[in-house]
Each structure stands twice: as structure tokens, then as C-alpha cells.
């Protein structure tokens, strides 16, 4: 039983990693006032760029670099539409998701001729797991051994990075000048403007951070969690991340826990397939799968707590005529 739990938690960490990265990406965007339902597209685009570059150059790190470049470029397109041209944030996000869904397959087919997939990645083209010192030696120690060697050790670097970014994000948002301005611009851009700070510049910077984080999430999917790019491999993770962002009420640490919860549900769903639960029978996998979405809907409707978005989110900033 305990071992099962450890295994589920271990899987939770792995499934949650891209969610945490993407949700934090969304957090920076929305805290600056930009709604980003294009997280999905950025993850997918980054996953493709990472796998493609890793396949060509044989290095996961170069893949990561390209993932970040691709994702930041998409984030900047979103910024260009929403910040510079006062476009509708949702429409722009839908556009980016659609373009990327088509473009990855189109380019993939042309470049690799494998029906839109990238070649399977091996060796240095993937991020491999890092084994902590003495992990094997301690594996047999009861309880702690299992936690240390199974749960904590043996993940790839991006997993550790994702969890390290959470406190870093807290620090940026609450302790730095940029963070103060970021939070201000999502609440009242007029106040920021009259304080002599460029609203657009802050928002663009937020979008770049958003792009970098989505780049990490995408690279994780195709070069760490999997060994190559598959069509539509982001599979709604961007939307779950968005749900987690709402669930965590736009604050980094609660957002991380929301991602862990959703990741846990995912891990459980996989485990529950075909399992008879005493007294209930077989719980359909789909019922667990939809829980993140159902929970988010309930939260938004105010049935469980209340989620208040940054006040200026989704609204283009236009200087008022005095």
C-alpha cells in the first residue's frame, strides 16, 4: 500500500511538472493583465521545437533553447496582438493554439517525414533522470529509503527546476521592483502609467517570462517525459494549467499545489483503470479525468471558495482622454 502511494506520488511529480511550469507562465501573464489561453499552443510549439532541435543537434539542451525561442516568439505574437493592437485576448489565444496545432504537424512532416512526429530521441537528446547519491544504497531503508530513492531521486533536471522556480517566482512577484509593477499593472494600469512606467513594456516582459516557462514545459513533454514529439501531445495541459492558475487564485504556491492536486488525480486515474473499488465497483477513468475541470467550474461559480482575478485582466489598456 505504502509503495503504491509512493509510486502514485512519484508519478504525480512527473505529471505535475509541465502543469506547474505552464501555470506559472499563465500567472505572470495574467498578473500583468493578459489572459493567456494560448498556453496550450506555446507548450505544443515548444515541445515540437525541442524535439526537432534535439533530433537534429543531438542535444536536449539545444532542444530546450529552441523550445524557449519558439515559445517566446509565440508569446510575443500574443503580446503584439493584445498589448500593441488592443486585440481580444481570448481570440488571440485561440489563434495561436490553432496555428501551432497545424504548423507543428506541417513542419514535422516536411522535416522528418514521419507523419508529423519527430524521430525518437535517445541518449543526450533527452533529459535523463538524475539519481541522487546513495539512492540505491538507501533504497532498502524502510519508509525513508523509498521516499528518498523513489520519490525524490530519479527525476530529470526539469522536474527539479520546476519546483525550484516556484519560490523564485514568489520572490520575483513579491520582493522585487518588477514584481510590484507587474502586480500593479494587472490591477490598475492607469496607476502604473501615471507613475511614469510603461504599461506595454511591463506586459511584454511578462509575456517573455511566460514564453520561457512554457518553453520549459514543452521541452519537458517532448525531450524528458517522452522521447520525441507527437501530434497534439500537449493534450489540454495548457488548459489544465489555466484551471490550476484559477484554482490557486493567481498565487504561486497555491498554484503549485493546485497543479500537484491535478497531477495526482491524473496519476490516480491511470492507476485506477480496471480496479474494483470495494463498495463502488469500478470507477470510470473519465470521472477522475474530468475532476480538474469540474472543480474549476465549481470554484468559478463560487460553490467552493471564490476566485478573484486581477482586476484589469483581459482589458486592453487605452489612455483615457482627459
Amino acid at each position: 500500500m505504502f509503495e503504491t502511494l509512493i509510486l502514485i506520488l512519484d508519478a504525480t511529480l512527473r505529471v505535475s511538472t509541465p502543469l506547474i511550469l505552464a501555470a506559472l507562465a499563465g500567472l505572470f501573464a495574467e498578473r500583468s493583465g493578459i489572459v493567456d489561453i494560448g498556453l496550450e499552443g506555446k507548450i505544443l510549439g515548444a515541445a515540437f521545437a525541442a524535439a526537432a532541435a534535439a533530433a537534429v543537434f543531438g542535444s536536449a539542451w539545444i532542444g530546450l533553447l529552441f523550445a524557449i525561442i519558439a515559445s517566446v516568439a509565440l508569446a510575443l505574437i500574443h503580446g503584439f496582438a493584445c498589448i500593441t493592437h488592443r486585440g481580444d485576448h481570448i481570440v488571440s489565444g485561440v489563434a495561436i493554439n490553432t496555428i501551432v496545432a497545424g504548423l507543428t504537424v506541417t513542419l514535422g512532416l516536411d522535416w522528418f517525414s514521419q507523419g508529423g512526429q519527430t524521430p525518437a530521441l535517445t541518449g543526450d537528446a533527452r533529459f535523463t533522470s538524475i539519481t541522487f547519491p546513495f539512492a540505491d544504497a538507501l533504497a532498502d531503508v524502510p519508509v525513508i529509503g523509498l521516499i528518498y530513492s523513489e520519490l525524490l531521486s530519479g527525476h530529470n533536471i526539469l522536474v527539479y527546476l520546476a519546483f525550484a522556480i516556484v519560490p523564485f517566482a514568489v520572490w520575483i512577484i513579491y520582493k522585487t521592483r518588477f514584481g510590484l509593477r507587474l502586480r500593479a499593472v494587472g490591477e490598475n494600469p492607469h496607476a502604473v502609467d501615471t507613475a511614469g512606467i510603461s504599461v506595454a513594456f511591463i506586459r511584454y516582459r511578462a509575456m517573455i517570462i511566460c514564453g520561457i516557462l512554457c518553453g520549459l514545459a514543452g521541452a519537458y513533454l517532448s525531450t524528458a517525459h517522452n522521447a520525441g514529439f507527437l501530434k497534439d501531445m500537449s493534450a489540454g495541459k495548457g488548459y489544465i494549467a489555466l484551471a490550476a492558475l484559477i484554482f490557486g487564485k493567481w498565487r504561486p504556491v497555491p498554484v503549485m499545489f493546485a497543479c500537484l492536486l491535478f497531477g495526482f488525480l491524473d496519476a490516480v486515474a491511470v492507476r485506477m483503470q480496471g480496479v474494483q473499488v470495494p463498495g463502488i465497483g469500478e470507477v470510470p477513468v473519465q470521472a477522475i479525468e474530468v475532476l480538474p475541470y469540474v472543480l474549476t467550474v465549481l470554484l468559478l461559480a463560487g460553490f467552493i471558495g471564490k476566485a478573484v482575478a486581477p482586476k484589469a485582466v483581459g482589458r486592453p489598456y487605452v489612455k483615457e482622454r482627459g
Binding site: T176, R177, R181, G196
Partner: peptide
């Protein structure tokens, strides 16, 4: 202090 933070760190 918004806009006149006096440095990259808030403290």
C-alpha cells in the same frame, strides 16, 4: 513607492 522603488529589490 510604485515607480520610485529606488532599486531592483523592494526591501
Amino acid at each position: 513607492v510604485l515607480g520610485a522603488e529606488g532599486g531592483a529589490m523592494l526591501k
